[in-house]
Nucleic acid binder design. Structure first.
Lengths: 258, 258
DNA sequence: TAGGGCCACTGGTCAGACCAGTAGCCGAGG
DNA sequence: CCTCGGCTACTGGTCTGACCAGTGGCCCTA
């Protein structure tokens, strides 16, 4: 029918979902803030006029969404939580594991976001000399970590990426990128066993990171972005088909300065 | 202490969390697939050896994460849901709400992701002529919508963005961008009341979208990306300080072809 | 003032009940 | 033989009350 009429579709709302909606709105509006305590479950059942198990089901949803946490025995009541990236890890890894999101899409996204972070860091290096100095320190940590083994290196590598994000100053973009970076790493660890010569990998990664810091320090936005793209492609293209690698290269490294 | 010893930290695991973990593993390993039905709650309580309310709490978590759904009276049991990138919507929104992301960061992120979507659509236009034809149709819908008013226009505008994302073929990137685009729109609706001459806004938006489709149709990746950046900046820079607008312009539109 | 004990509250789990909703089976009628 | 309606037994949603481990905070004693 061309004219749908004055009504819209309705769907029954479950009591615990209505409770979640009230909480969502209270958090969105700032009426409830991270660090706040909620009333106890028994008090919430009185306020909402529902059974305690209905309150608990709503709290499970909020907890699952990373909004609240509770501890048995804590008399102060459930706590409203500061945001955590754990919130995104679960769905991200679930999507990867069922193949709804491919490694290709993940790496594409990462190149978009991490390349932008690198470029952004370069534009801000002049206002954050301490941050840049810290990047050099983190490069040294990379070398120290590599000498101790892959686990230490990976830890130092994460710290390095966090350092770049701090200089870039966009925590939202950084969070998105971190979730994707860690999801890709975990995916490869559990689903792929393409042997990579670890010492070669670490050596080349360190070289790339040093060059990246040079571009950042010099304020070279586009060079920093390209350096990041080169590094990611160098690492991941072994996991892609030739066609996929070519498409990434064409999209990110074509044209200017290519 | 420098040497942590042979043990690692432990934390008590709640029964419903242990149930969720078993489900996660079953989904990850493919033992449970989208479309499958789970045993009923009463059967699950027997299998896990726990109370029905504990099962229900676990199911709330899985449902909240977009993995299962249920309907009262459905004798076939809870259903495992097809996983889609929609899975990310809720945690992304939660992240935005709790994380108190600024409008500047939202727009920065959107320019990064939407610019890439536009460029990606341009690189794929030759393999998706139907998609491009549909974009022209959606541009016509924009014009029709604008004639009927802002609400119709905004609806057509969302459809247009979804059309671009379809041509781009990265639902992952699209979902991220959609969450942010809608969040920015909602932010403006609730926090700003700078009057924008609506007819001017719609007219200019339509012109920009037409130009964007031209670039996409011509396969001009960088031009499509820049067009998208121009459009977003033209719309949002009124909400930023001169310094902020200048920084966005410098980052996204400097250098090549600037 | 500090530490330990205790109490009353907390959250986690459970059993059982009730009710609205639905899948599917069976029978009747066309 | 097919379709439709009625009915049954199961489903999920909600609730009440109970029990127990855990904890915050108060009070008392050294």
């Amino acid at each position: 029918m061309s004219d749908p009429g004055p009504f819209s579709q309705v769907k029954p709302v479950r009591a615990y979902e209505a409770i979640v909606a009230q909480f969502d709105e209270a958090i969105r509006s700032g009426a409830i803030r991270p660090g706040d305590r909620l009333p106890s479950e028994r008090e919430l059942m009185r306020q909402f006029g529902v059974g305690r198990s209905t309150v608990r089901e709503a709290l499970r949803v909020l907890q699952s969404n990373g909004m609240v946490r509770s501890r048995p025995g804590d008399r102060r009541g459930p706590e409203v939580v500061s945001f955590s990236t754990e919130l995104l890890h679960r769905p991200m890894e679930a999507l990867l594991n069922v193949g709804q999101v491919t490694l290709y899409e993940l790496i594409f996204f990462r190149m978009v976001t991490e390349g932008s972070l690198a470029g952004l860091a370069a534009t801000r290096s002049d206002v954050d000399p301490d941050g840049v100095a810290q990047l050099w320190s983190l490069v040294q940590d990379l070398k120290d970590g590599a000498a101790r083994g892959m686990q230490h290196f990976l830890k130092a590598d994460s710290a390095f990426h966090e350092g770049v994000s701090r200089v870039a100053g966009s925590s939202f973009l950084a969070v998105q990128n971190d979730v994707v970076r860690i999801a890709a790493r975990n995916y490869l660890a559990t689903n792929m066993d393409t042997p990579v010569r670890r010492s070669d990998y670490m050596t080349r990664a360190i070289e790339s990171h040093e060059l990246l810091v040079r571009h950042i320090e010099a304020g070279e936005q586009h060079a920093a972005t390209r350096m990041n793209h080169h590094t990611i492609l160098a690492h991941y293209s072994v996991f892609f088909s030739e066609d996929e690698a070519a498409r990434l290269r064409a999209f990110f490294l074509s044209g200017e300065g290519g």
